[in-house]
Design a protein around this nucleic acid. Structure first.
Lengths: 194, 194
DNA sequence: GAGCGAAGCGGACTACAGTCCGGTCATGGA
DNA sequence: TCCATGACCGGACTGTAGTCCGCTTCGCTC
């Protein structure tokens, strides 16, 4: 068969089966014992798979955590792309941006331990996550629409402020209320959009 | 002798000697082989000290890296507190803030590998560094002076955008020029000050 | 359905961070 | 000077991430 140019490499049947097994095992372990239970040994044993298989499929522990978050993240992405305004299309850029910040904060805080793991398991993990370019592009486009200078830099700066580590500091260490925090951060986004 | 209330616990002579030894060994290893050479085993061996000693004194590897950066950091702190404007006192708050961002970016990029280590060795490391409250307070005060809303949140958001991980992504992964980047980030600071 | 190249697999292995606790020695008081 | 105390020390030990490479399985082709 001719390879389809640009298509993701097709996955062998055994590989696909093992990916599902690993994700199910990881989800179960996480449900039972939190992130502390998510050791690569435990996941491999529970999935009935070798450690090498996990690393081949998910690069590292952070990648596994990111994969666990995938479905939830995709739901948010859909709301951003095709949902009702102000998060979805139709509202002014600054309003969409503010709505994104609130939704992103809630999304992240809702799975804080996994997101934290996915972003801090390896240095630079946050920027290396497959979804990162999606968030960045979305924010960049909105900033550009709003007429802000240096939209790319500002987009990354804004996302850095929404890093799991920072949100963890605010909501857990400092004990701040998520709603109030999200609203202040939405304000930050508006400030950057001008 | 009566303990002095509020004073830092005095350090025993052998403890002080060992701290110096560890720092010298770490600095030498770093000079020779970069951060990769900074394993706790190697530092302990070179310092002629047990690993327990390192952990007693520096908490973890990130703390050791932070201690190595201490002197350089103190120089920047002095320039901020008593140096000439616009970094030091005397200039309008927004200008001081912009000058801080530029100086901080240069400071961080100048020792990027060590700062990265100090901030990412442990999750939440950036917020746990002893100097963090200093930077945060400085930015917060300037934002407040400039009349910005939610100065504390904005200060932390700004510092998050200046995290070593992010600066590493921009300057190394993306290959961006430090000067141009610093100036765009100074602009971000000005936007937050309004 | 047999052959074959390549992708995938697994688990022993390495390297490293951080802990633990029995022994040691600095320090201040008598 | 000598002693009691507890801070300090060191290095063996544990737990975990991530690597490596010989073996297996897949799936395409003929």
């Amino acid at each position: 068969m001719l390879p389809v140019v640009g298509a993701p490499a097709p996955e062998r049947a055994d590989a696909a089966r093992n990916r599902v097994r690993v994700l199910e095992a990881a989800a179960a372990l996480h449900a039972e014992g939190g992130v502390a239970a998510l050791t690569t040994d435990a996941v491999a044993a529970r999935a009935g798979v070798g450690k090498g298989t996990i690393y081949r499929r998910f690069t590292d522990k952070g990648g596994l955590a990111a994969a666990l978050l995938d479905e939830r993240g995709r739901r948010l992405q859909e709301r951003m792309l095709t949902g009702p305004p102000p998060l979805g299309p139709g509202a002014p850029a600054a309003d969409r941006l503010a709505a994104f910040v609130v939704a992103y904060v809630e999304h992240t805080v809702g799975s804080l331990d996994l997101v934290l793991l996915s972003e801090t398991a390896t240095p630079g993990g946050r920027l290396a996550k497959p979804v990162y370019p999606f968030w960045r592009r979305h924010v960049e486009v909105l900033l550009e629409e709003a007429g802000a200078p240096a939209p790319r830099t500002r987009a990354e700066a804004l996302l850095a402020a929404l890093a799991a580590e920072q949100l963890h500091g605010w909501t857990v260490a400092d004990g701040r209320a998520v709603d109030a925090l999200a609203s202040e951060l939405a304000d930050v986004a508006r400030a950057l959009a001008r």
